[in-house]
Structures are given as structure tokens and as C-alpha cells.
Design a protein around this nucleic acid. Sequence first.
DNA 1: TAGATTGTTAATCGATTAACAATC
DNA 2: TAGATTGTTAATCGATTAACAATC
Lengths: 210, 210
Amino acid sequence: MSTAQVPGATVARLPGYLHALEAVRGTGVVTSEELARAAGVSPAQLRKDLSFLGSYGRRGVGYDVAHLERQIGAVLGVQTRRTVVIVGIGYLGHALASYGGFAERGFDVAALVDADPQVVGTRVAGLVVEPVDALAQVVARTGATVGVIAVPAPYAQDVCDGLVGAGVTGLLTFAPRALRVPDGVTVRAVDVASELQILAFHDARRHEGV
Amino acid sequence: MSTAQVPGATVARLPGYLHALEAVRGTGVVTSEELARAAGVSPAQLRKDLSFLGSYGRRGVGYDVAHLERQIGAVLGVQTRRTVVIVGIGYLGHALASYGGFAERGFDVAALVDADPQVVGTRVAGLVVEPVDALAQVVARTGATVGVIAVPAPYAQDVCDGLVGAGVTGLLTFAPRALRVPDGVTVRAVDVASELQILAFHDARRHEGV
DNA sequence: TAGATTGTTAATCGATTAACAATC
DNA sequence: TAGATTGTTAATCGATTAACAATC
């Protein structure tokens, strides 16, 4: 299963297909139409996306739910456990640390880090928060390959540098800042204020009469 | 300023440009190269994007920071205050309610709603949490046009329906579920577990030797 | 004028959609 | 076999990139 040639847009939709498949677990077979509706895409797009992974359906029948779930899971590497360290334990960091949905996706939150002495040492979601000075050691000890940045924007690049320097190769940031990383490090950014502004744009357009 | 023909990909980058401009406030003029680096895009893409809005730069000189900030702000409707209601006041809802970055982007969080009787009535970020039964009244009273869905996945569609039924036209959801909405309602979805899986995919690909 | 930088054009690239032959 | 649905092809659409003429 060479995943090298799977388009980025397709990769971004695979987790959604996995979600949709989980929702119909127990059903033996689904058609592209059913699964596409559940995932919020068109049947044509679903089939096209799946065709990049291989031929996992049966013409005239549909897709075997359990089999397809395994295949997509394999492409996304669900069976490979990945260790995550969360930096910044404010409300957002709390929310992420407490989120139960990571484990079944192959992610283990192994450490929490914060700069605030008041927060360091407290217990959050079963983990003791460690000081940001110890970031490199924490990454080394836990073998974390993914870092989540939930600190205020002005500190995001420093935390990013620290994580990358310690060997993390995947970053998820919630700070509204473009992060500079070396080649070989992947960054995904979630910016809530930007999302709201995109909504606002579409809303304004609507009232413009488009 | 007809914004009708601004491509979706461009719209999605405009908030990032606004951020980058804020960072260089005080500087009189920036070139596309400087601003592009700050925003994490190529100079060519920045100029292309801005060209959809109009001709706000001066050849041989660059862009006037204050002027460009006003123009992009206008396209995104920053000056139009929008009222937001947040549904689901767990850690994530707390984080969103407490986030200070919304106000300067034109968003006023006017109400918080939760289904848990233990949470209803408590004060969060200066607002008293209201019961989800009163969702329609809350939307009507506050005039909210944007709804943020931070409830567990199984309740997301119900909350979505309630918000849309009450007149909200923009939705930001954090639940890993495809939401069904009527035409005229815009949905933006943030799915943290999916983001991590996309990181994992790229990481796995790296170890495959691509 | 000479140098710099935008705005725009054209070429390339990637993603989506539609249609249908293959096949269960 | 007849009906259904996939996998794939081809056409369309949209986004990105590169280059350069316009112009400050």
C-alpha cells in the first residue's frame, strides 16, 4: 500500500470517512452513496478518494464496513501508537488533555507542559504538568513525535522551536501565528478567530445579495 | 468593493494577512515579500490574493500597512459587529468563552448555553450559562448570527438544528460529525483528532522513505 | 533616469465532477 | 440474466506559480 501518491485533499478527508464508518459499524456493507452522505461529501468524490488507496469495494454491492475501516485506518497509521505532548495548559490545553477521542485514533497524550509556576505540578487529566524549561527532556523521555501548541501567540514560535529541536516532527498549533519550521516537519494550524471571520465573510456576502 | 468574486482559498487566507499586518503596525509600508514571509505564504500568492480585493499597493514601494489593514478588515466585515452564542460549556467552551481575541475581530460572545443543570446558572467569562431548552429565545434575544458548537458529537446535529431554526446563519463546530444544514447556512468545522491523523499520515510517509 | 515592486497574464498544477464501462 | 454499484476516464473547474510589463 504505497501511500505516496494520495493527494493531500484526499488525505484530509480520510479521517472523516473513518468517523462515518464507525457510525455504521455493525452494518455489513455500505454503498458510496450512504457513506458519502454520512461524511458530507458527494458519492463521486468518495469513490475517487478511495480509489487512491486501492480497490476495496465490490461493484454492484458496496464496501465492507469492517474491511474498509481497517484499510483507511492502516493508511492513516491508526495502529501505530503516537505520543503527544501538549504545551500550554490553559482552558484549551485542559480541553485537549481531557479529550477522550485521541486514544482510539492512535494518539497517547503522554505529557503536559506549561510555563506558569502556578500550573506546573498540578494534576490534569491524570498527568502532572511539567515546566516548559524541561521541554526537551519531556520529549526525549516520552518519545513524543507530535506536539500540540496551545500557548498565547507571542510564545508560539519559541515553543515550536523547542519542540522541533527536541525531535518532534508533527505540530498542531492553535496560536494565530505562522510558524517557521525546517523541512521535514509538518504543521497543521487551527485558528478559531480566522474561522469566525470566514463565516462573517460569507454572511456579509449573503446580505450583499449574492 | 464587490467581494462576490473573491476565491474561497483567498478568503481563507485573509485573516492571516490581517494578523501579519497587526504585527507590523507602526511600520509605514511593507512589501509583498515581507508580508508574505510573516504570513507564511509566497509573495506571488499574496499579491495575487490582494489583487482580488483591488489595487491597494504602490508599485516600486509596497503596501501602506494601515490602509491595507483597513481594506482587508472591510472585506472581512470587521467593522460589522457580530453576535456569537456558544453551545456546550465544557473545557473547550470555557476556552472559547474566555478567548480575548474575538472582540477585535468583530465578534461579541453574547451568550453561553449548556445542557447540564450543574453548569447552567454558573458564571463563565462574565456570562451566566443558560439552559439549552432556551436556545431559541437566547438567539432571538441576543440577535446572534453565529453559533459555536462545542458539545459532544452525538448532540451536535440537534444543537445545529436548534441554532439554524433560531436564525443563525454561520456555524463553527468542533464535533467530529458532518452537519446537515439548509442552503444559506455556512459551516466551518474544526476537528482536532482529524488534524492529528493528518500529521500522522505525513509522519508515516516520511518513515516510508518518500 | 534607474531601481524597485506591484498587478496581471499565462502556464502549470491539482482537485472536483460527471458519465459510463467494468463487474459483482 | 438483470440490476446495481464500483472504479476509472475525461472534462471541467479552481488554485498556484512564475514571469514580466506597468509604474511608482
